[in-house]
Design a protein around this nucleic acid. Sequence first.
DNA 1: ATCATACCCCGGTTTTCCACTGGGGTTTAG
DNA 2: CTAAACCCCAGTGGAAAACCGGGGTATGAT
Lengths: 152, 152
Amino acid sequence: MILPVELSCKSEYALLALIELAAHYDTGEPLQIRQIAAQQNIPDRYLEQLLATLRRGGIIRSQRGAKGGYTLAREPWKINLLEVFICIEGLETQPNAQDSDAKSDKTLEGAVILEIWQEAHRAASAILQKYTLQELRDRRDSRRQLDFMYYI
Amino acid sequence: MILPVELSCKSEYALLALIELAAHYDTGEPLQIRQIAAQQNIPDRYLEQLLATLRRGGIIRSQRGAKGGYTLAREPWKINLLEVFICIEGLETQPNAQDSDAKSDKTLEGAVILEIWQEAHRAASAILQKYTLQELRDRRDSRRQLDFMYYI
DNA sequence: ATCATACCCCGGTTTTCCACTGGGGTTTAG
DNA sequence: CTAAACCCCAGTGGAAAACCGGGGTATGAT
């Protein structure tokens, strides 16, 4: 059906990678696939595809050649989670329902269900939209602090 | 991953069937698989499984034998969409994260992502929880009225 | 210049899950 | 006792997700 909002491996990998990139954003230096993959236990050849998608989506930039790698295309607080999901999962469609009488569900009941489903989807999207990579990074860091405190 | 919030065929079929059952609730008579399947264009053998799940979930009751069929276990306004989804998709788990140190994501970053994801999920769930089968039925009926008006 | 590094592109494989089907059995009204 | 209906469980086909590999291209260092 339309509207596959799920936390797939893909999305999680992408976000994990983006957290790393956000953490290294200050340095201006690019991060390489290998490093990210090792840090987060992601199969590197797979991660490569995801990063390519993120690049095409304008979320990250890539530098080719030796000493190359990836950097965020914008500041971490200007990238929200919703656009990451949309970029990765690629839920582009959902144009206006009618073009003459296409196959747009065609039953009253289906339309009613879809309507409510979309309302729920919008609610979830609003949450994702208000969180940025910066917040993710900050939360990670404060968690680290906390764990360190417990360790002592 | 955890938390697959998506509108699957399964869920849609189940809701379509439940709308039919809600519409016939006043009569007290049971509805048969064949009738529901024909009405909503659902493969009947498949629908059978879904109805079985709904029955085990306490959402509908079944009457065996000749003249048997299915009825809602409660009034249509006492069944909300969230419980239908939970029953059908079976997202039961999500216990407290730690039992010693199981495989519960184990990385800080994963936990942070999961946390936000769950917040989004709760937002969507709240929407689904506030709609009942009665509302679905009502919407369907008023849509029908509207379409009829246009027809004239 | 050349060479190692690291991204780029595109296709294949494996695994998993979903939608769907089939073959029996059991209960119940007439 | 028989037909109508639900009940249970075990498959199958296809598609998508996750993952891997090969060869190409740009780039910094020597």
